[in-house]
Amino acid sequence: MTTEMLAVFLGSSIRLAMPLLLAAIGELVSERAGVLNMSLEGMMLTGAFAGAVAAWATGSPVLGLVAAVAAVVPVALLQAFLTNTLRANQIVSGLGLNILILGATTLGYREIFGARSREAIPGFDKWSPPGLGDIPVFGEAVFTQVWLVYAAPLIVIAVAMMLRTTALGIALRAAGESPRVLDRAGLSAVRLRYGVVIFTGIMAALGGAFLAIGDIHTFTEGMTNGAGYLAIAAVIFGKWDIVRTAIACLLFGAATALQFQLPAMGIEVPSALLIMSPYLLAFLSVAGLVGRQTAPRALAVPYWR
C-alpha cells in the first residue's frame, strides 16, 4: 500500500465510521441506563430525512442539522413512552418504529422530491484544522473533513467523563444495573430512562444527518441501510465501554472502506465477507469467544416500580 492509498484509506475509514460513532455514543449511554433502542436505525433515518429535506428547503446545512434533531425528538419520545411507561418489549417496539419510519420517510421522500429525486442537497463544506491540513498527503486525505468529524472525539471525551465522574453518570449506570436501588435512593429510574432515549435520538439524528448532508449530500430511500444495527453491534463489540465502542466504530468503518480499497490494490476478497465482518466480530464478541460478557444487568428489562 502506498502512502497515498494509506492516507485515503484512513480518511475514508474515519468518514464511514462517523455516522456509526455518533449513533453508538447515544446507544451506549442508553444501554448503560438499561434501555436497548432497537429503533436506532429508524432514528438515524429520521435524522437523515429531516436533515436532507430542511437543508434542501432552506439551503442551509446548519438548519438541516437543527431540523434533524427536532424531528427525532417525537420519535424518541414515542420510543421512551412505549418502553418506559407502557413497558413494551423494547425489541418489538423498536423494530415496529423502524418499519414505520422506513415507510414514512420513503412516502415523504416521494411526496416532497418526487421526480426531482437524486437532486444534490446543500451539505457541509469540508474543513481542515490549521496545521493538520498542511501535512503532506495526510492533510488532504485524512484531515480535510466536515466539522462534525472533529466534534465527535470531543463528544466521546465529554460522555466518558460524564459517565465516569459525575453524579449523573453514576445514576445512569445504576439505572442499567439495578433501577430499584436508584429509586430507593430517591431518583426516578423512569425519568432517567426517558432522558437517555431522547439523548440517543439526538445522537442518532446527528449520525443520520451526517450521512445525508455531511457525506453523500442526498437522501435515498432507506439510506441508513442497517447502520443503526451496526452501531448497536459496535456497542456490543465494545463491551459497553465508550472508548472500546469508539474503536469498534472505527474498525467497522475501516472494514467498509476496505471494500473499495482492496480492489484498488488488486486484492480479490469477496466484498460480502468484508461487509459481513463487523457483524461477525460483534457476534463472536457476544458468543463469549472474545472475552467475557459485560452487558448491563437490567438491559432491556422494563422497570416496574
Binding site: S93, G96, N98, L100, T106, L107, R110
Partner: peptide, 16 residues
C-alpha cells in the same frame, strides 16, 4: 411504502 407504514403502526400499537 404506505403498506409499510400501516404495518409499522400495527406493530407499534400491538407492542404498546
Amino acid at each position: 411504502a404506505l403498506v409499510v407504514v400501516i404495518q409499522g403502526l400495527i406493530v407499534v400499537a400491538v407492542a404498546g
